[in-house]
């Protein structure tokens, strides 16, 4: 099934004018900015896990590498933030490729584990890296704000940040839709649905998997960079398992390989998560329950429901 740009453009238009209603609500704006940034990470995760069938748990680690790289490059080396974000995302992409090259030839559980271990080892590496300015177990603070053509974007000003993150989000959606609709995407769907057949007609999954993994890593790195300059603080808490499970809930409830679903889930759960904060330790417990229940009882997630409704609707239109 080819994805159309139509719905994405409609959504973009709605999002473009949304601040007219809520620009005074700083909290809500913040949540929307975070949703946009997370959605970049998650759309990439969905692409590699749901479409390319790469069983990766490393997407958050790569996001973190992007965030830390850009934070350190701008704060310590003194690169302008926009440059540091770009370089940081290239570093994140490079790490992604280094991990992908040996592991993507292996069975799924190995990929899952290598990437999970990358995530865990990164926590130690950041602590070890204290001497080179990673902030160790605490955090990097005072990251310079984003500036562009002489205009600087302090985090307090939600509106410009909203448009920056929205632009990034839609840029990434269009790239991912293009990938899914390209020959890569089609060969992935073929591999996913009929692996033997696809292999017999010569679909080279290894090469395309590496390319797509790298693309997802690049965007995760970019999102990480913008996150660092928006928050102006990065800490190893991004790598906490409660955060991991939150993003996993978004991915699973959104529906693996059911494209628009993951974006809807990102927005729902970013908001829900804020309201779950008073629950403290119950929040990760609840998120754990959600992952299990979602995967057992709604394996196609929100994306499955969206697809179901749109096909019904199309059929209905055709009949009438």
């Amino acid at each position: 099934m080819k994805l159309s740009y139509k719905n994405t453009i409609i959504a973009f238009a709605v999002m473009l004018f949304l601040p007219l209603l809520i620009h005074d609500n700083s909290f809500l704006m913040h949540i929307l900015i975070m949703s946009c940034l997370f959605s970049v990470l998650l759309v990439g995760w969905d692409l590699i896990m749901g479409y390319a069938g790469i069983f990766s748990f490393g997407q958050i680690a790569i996001f973190t590498i992007g965030a830390y790289s850009s934070a350190m490059l701008s704060k310590i080396v003194g690169l302008p933030p926009l440059i540091s974000i770009l370089v940081g995302s290239l570093i994140a992409c490079g790490v992604g490729i280094i991990v992908a090259l040996p592991s993507l030839r292996l069975a799924g559980i190995y990929v899952a584990m290598v990437t999970f271990l990358l995530h865990e080892a990164l926590i130690s590496m950041i602590r070890i890296g204290r001497v080179i300015g990673t902030g160790g177990a605490t955090s990097i603070t005072g990251i310079p704000p984003l500036s562009f053509l002489g205009y600087s974007f302090p985090s307090i000003e939600r509106l410009p940040w909203y448009y920056v993150s929205l632009t990034l989000a839609f840029l990434s959606y269009f790239v991912f839709i293009r990938i899914i609709n390209s020959s890569y995407g089609i060969s992935f769907v073929a591999l996913r649905d009929a692996e033997d057949l696809a292999k017999s007609v010569g679909v080279d999954d290894y090469r395309s998997k590496i390319i797509v993994f790298a693309m997802a890593a690049l965007f995760a790195g970019l999102a990480g960079g913008f996150y660092a300059h928006y928050m102006r603080l990065v800490s190893v808490r991004i790598l906490g398992l409660d955060n991991f499970i939150l993003l996993l809930v978004m991915l699973i409830v959104g529906g693996l390989g059911k494209f628009p679903g993951v974006i809807v889930a990102t927005f729902i759960f970013t908001i829900l998560n804020e309201y779950m904060r008073p629950l403290e330790v119950f929040r990760p417990i609840l998120l754990g329950v959600m992952v299990i229940v979602a995967i057992i009882y709604m394996p196609n997630g929100i994306g499955g429901i969206i697809n179901f409704i749109t096909t019904k609707f199309r059929r209905f239109k055709r009949i009438s």
């Binding site: 069983f55 748990f57 991991f244 330790v281 990760p284």
Partner: peptide
């Protein structure tokens, strides 16, 4: 894949239950 994801959820759940 789904078993891995679900057991990961269970792992986080149990660890936090112990914490609680």
């Amino acid at each position: 894949i789904t078993t891995v994801v679900a057991t990961l959820g269970l792992g986080v759940l149990l660890a936090n239950l112990v914490l609680f």
